[in-house]
Design a binder for these strands. Structure first.
Lengths: 339, 339
DNA sequence: TTGAAAGCGCTAACAT
DNA sequence: ATGTTAGCGCTTTCAA
């Protein structure tokens, strides 16, 4: 059976390899890091010795000695839908080749949790810290600012960045969908969302949507928000509730595609014809929404790109290069067929 | 602007806090780790000093000194659908409270990549290494076996575990769906899948399904597999292709729910009535499939549980407790309405 | 191109 | 309840 505490490991060290190869520790170290001048012959001998004894370098020790790690701390609010996994995919594709690894933590949309995770991740002396959104507790902001690590704020470019921000304007996305609806003649609106006290970007979109339709003199007839996270099931049920309790709604804005797809399913199951009887729009542009018999009207977000750009930003900083303070990856309104 | 290389950090150390609080370094260390006896009065003084100077502990140094980290290496094949994020959610919920962090890496279903990631993660002296599946390159298996870390293999219990395995039988899942179809009188089967050379668990399900229907004397009429990863769009197109090139198929087994939901959408868009004209079944029991106007026939997998149990296994080992070598979390056939 | 010496910041083990 | 000592395995700096 395996050792229990995971700790004490194959106690092989540089010294063991050095002895085997008949060189000094520092030479082995140089070979491993491909740093400094090494005679080809020496390199081969050392590499053979490493293979022979089965040496696994100790990154804890090397990070310690060089006062910094190749870890990148990542703080996301949720892994419950595909949005943040998409971001992380993009990040990995940018950084993996350079040997960086991500340490992912999840806040569950709680600001206090974010603060503790940032504190904890900072203690790993990461090469960078990537957080979600631009709204943080004062303490969190303070820690991020006063630490010397590269900080990347993702998703949202509606506020001043701490260091580097990469994302899009959620205010603009909400406005854009409102304009789309208004342009198609819809006037009596409903909203179906999830927990807006926590998901501040969804709130921004809704507020901007509401402001825009109100300015245009249209009506906000009703709103249903579910207490928990977004899901297809929640969207389906919430639309049922909205339509049961409010009459005359001709278009519904959903907090995201998961919720909106649930709305589409409610309509399918209840003989409501889209977009004739009701218009539906979401946010994110998920593959599944575009694969529906009638493609979902939505806003395509470039989630993978956001993660990838974040990775490039970290690499640029690591290499001592400049990177723009704020990068707007933009979004695209997909007209679809549901509105 | 921020320091570029992320490295040199607020050079505060235990010594600074110790000086401020008028105690020794080890006392500060004990307060931080809540370890060993500390006078309440001393604790307060130290905590005040930590706050005053803004000390952030150095986990690299502490891991180094104590010969092991609180990091848990996680190797998954993909983050492109919700399955592995669900696993990671479960894992986080089990371990976060104890201060463990996960270092997530993605193989993209490549065995060679898995080997390199395992090698790299091992060098962090992790508290545990969590990998996906029970099929690995000989080198990988060797590294995992000879290292002293706790190894947890996820998802698949169809082979002998290296150390601890948590999952379900994919062979049994494939058989079960075949029996379900056969029991309902279907006899002419099709299969729609994604890249089976890489996704070995999907392959196990298909092979078991095929074997079972063949034993029953039923026909495997045709199969379409797409080269890339699974997706709703791919499933929709692939079913179109299958039906265009093979006649007389009355039931299709999909490699997973993403693909199957695409199949459902193809049917919706082409006037194919489920399950009268065609039966469809998937695998995973995603929320969205169950929210369809006709709930998808599928096998519910306990992904979150698998991750959570993996976390419990790691904690148990860390605490020097036993944990079962193999845990089968089982699965549940959801009859749904599409088959 | 290679090596020797020093030390990174913390914790384990052993006093007191 | 607190302190002293030693050292974890590597990299940095300086020397040869």
């Amino acid at each position: 059976m395996k050792g229990r505490r995971s700790f004490q490991q194959s106690a092989l060290t540089l010294a063991d390899v050095a002895r085997e190869a008949g060189v000094s520790e520092i030479t082995v170290s140089r070979v491993i890091r491909s740093k400094g001048p090494i005679a080809p012959e020496t390199r081969e001998r050392v590499e053979a010795a490493i293979r022979k004894v089965g040496y696994v370098p100790n990154r804890i020790a090397s990070s310690f000695a060089s006062a910094g790690s190749d870890l990148i701390g990542v703080v996301v609010p949720s892994l419950a839908n595909i949005v943040f996994p998409d971001v992380i995919r993009g990040l990995h594709d940018a950084i993996s080749g350079r040997g960086f690894r991500s340490v992912v933590s999840v806040t569950d949309y709680r600001m206090e949790t974010e603060r503790e995770l940032v504190r904890s991740l900072l203690s790993w002396r990461p090469a960078a810290l990537i957080v979600t959104g631009c709204d943080h507790e004062p303490d969190t902001r303070q820690m991020l600012q006063s630490s010397d690590v590269t900080v990347v704020e993702l998703m949202d470019t509606d506020s001043e960045p701490i260091d580097i921000s990469i994302g899009m304007s959620h205010v603009e996305a909400g406005r854009e969908m409102a304009r789309h609806y208004l342009g198609r003649g819809y006037r009596r609106f409903g909203y179906v969302g999830h927990d807006l006290d926590r998901d501040l970007r969804a709130r921004k979109r809704r507020d901007a949507f509401n402001a825009t339709v109100t300015e245009a003199g249209a009506n906000l007839v009703g709103e249903v928000t579910v207490p928990g996270p977004s899901s297809v099931t929640a969207g389906r049920e919430a639309l049922g509730e909205l339509l049961a309790t409010h009459i005359g709604i001709d278009a519904v804005y959903f907090s995201n595609d998961d919720m909106a797809i649930g709305g589409v399913f409610h309509c399918m199951a209840n003989g409501i014809t889209l977009p004739h009887d009701l218009a539906i729009a979401g946010f994110n542009g998920l593959d599944i929404g575009q694969s529906l018999p009638q493609p979902l009207t939505t806003v395509l977000t470039r989630r993978y790109d956001i993660g990838f750009q974040a990775g490039l930003a970290v690499l640029a900083r690591f290499d001592g290069l400049d990177f723009p303070t704020s990068t707007d990856v933009g979004f695209e309104l997909l007209a679809g067929a549901t509105a």
